[in-house]
Write a protein that binds this DNA or RNA. Structure first.
Lengths: 248, 248
DNA sequence: CGAGGTTTTGACTCCACTCAATAGACGTGG
DNA sequence: CCACGTCTATTGAGTGGAGTCAAAACCTCG
């Protein structure tokens, strides 16, 4: 489940990640920032494809991604998997565990991923004391839900190429917002099989859809780096409109 | 957009619906109930297929379903539609508008539907005064999100018959929980085209999948009444596990 | 009884899946 | 530095689930 303790701490502290993230979607006061900075975090790094929280766990803490990516997923009886969402620095993937005690899905680290844990008790004390921060966190979970709905549209009404393009667009905007991507390129630490599990495709078809996007000249993906050559083209095939991300 | 004012008020008051609903998923104190009962509601009835809130609106109130069903949906450029979720008595479909100001999707009444509106200002005052109620409402939005994720699994990894069976199971449990269904039957006020838009299918294929469920002897659907003849069978083809509904 | 919506059926097409084999990337250890 | 095993990516061939188009049957209600 776990890995080695943190080696060399990343340059940005846990609190700073969370503050940066919340500022991108809501108004955060100086008092809110101070309260976040007073939280005590436990930093840990997970190796590739290790589980941070298992399906069925009853966690006593929630985690803040600082470096790398994580995803939530569930496996079905026939061995198929569905990835619900990806989480990047600044995100708190399992904040809902504050309110829903048993995890109905797992949380997995992709590649090398550093997260900071906060005890539920600390978090609860914080949101009882500071209503405006509680509202900001609530808002954040609602935005997570809008992303989930966007995924529903993708799976329900877009075909493979559009789905993939949409994911590429969303992740670029989100990563850029927290300062982890720029210049239309970013590290996409996923295998094609994982891409397929997120998009509701077979890995063979994920491969072919990716080739289609390459052939169109929209993206290249090589050695885990995605480069977007034609943002407008990508946005068009994806029918991507960033409004649902509610970035201020 | 609207319709006639309420004719004969339903037997259960708006506050009672909300209390019943929240009690089914969280612990609610006597004070919480009193606070809900002190809210002022404006009841209105919408005719079939009329819009309660439009995509792009900036609502100043949120609405509580009292009778009938509503759904949220969005239309795509090519004319296709995706229905994200259905809402039944006790649900507050647009509570997120408290935090996310512009609606990125529409809310539509199916058949005759009665809803009660509460002003955002009243709601905000309430959740600032009563933290435990705020937490219960937050929790409710998180459960809405788990249902959305379950929809993602359906669209991504189940085929048509399983998707439909899953929806039938979920709606039965939800309706029974608030006392609107019993004895393995309920009013399903949807056309097959709407069913298709919710399940990410064409209406022709929705029809064929429904026939398949009939042929298996699991359900009948006639004159908007769904009867489940074989719950276990339905649950099995759906791979349905009600845990995600977080009903206590 | 007729009009308009909804459900059903048939025929054909196509997107995406499965199975299977090959090629490439990467890390490890001899 | 190369051999080897293990992932991961790519390709091909054949299949099948779901879509499209269009017509017919069926309700329902004024």
């Amino acid at each position: 489940m776990s890995d080695d303790p943190d080696p060399g701490l990343p340059s940005v502290a846990p609190a700073a990640w969370l503050i940066r993230k919340l500022k991108s979607t809501a108004q955060i006061s100086a008092r809110d920032c101070a309260d976040i900075e007073n939280l005590s975090f436990t930093v840990r790094t997970f190796g590739g494809r290790t589980s941070i929280v298992h399906e069925g766990d009853v966690p006593k803490q929630c985690c803040l991604v600082m470096d790398g990516w994580a995803y939530r997923c569930r496996s079905l009886a026939n061995g198929q998997r569905q990835i619900f969402a990806f989480y990047v620095p600044g995100d708190i993937p399992d904040i809902e565990s504050l309110h829903l005690h048993v995890m109905d899905q797992g949380l997995v680290a992709i590649a090398q991923t550093t997260v900071a844990f906060v005890a539920h008790s600390d978090m609860r004390a914080l949101i009882e004391r500071n209503t405006s921060l509680a509202m900001a966190l609530w808002r954040d979970t609602l935005i997570d839900a809008t992303r989930c709905r966007e995924r529903v549209i993708s799976l329900g009404r877009r075909q493979a190429v559009g789905r993939m393009a949409h994911l590429f667009c969303e992740m670029y905007i989100r990563l850029r917002t927290v300062g982890v991507a720029d210049d239309f390129r970013y590290v996409l630490p996923l295998t094609q099989a994982e891409l397929a599990d997120a998009l509701g495709l077979s890995s063979v078809h994920a491969n072919r859809s990716l080739q289609e996007l390459r052939k169109l000249g929209f993206v290249t993906l090589h050695r885990r780096e995605l480069i977007i050559h034609d943002w407008d083209g990508l946005e068009t095939v994806a029918e991507f409109d960033p409004a649902y991300l509610h970035i201020v």
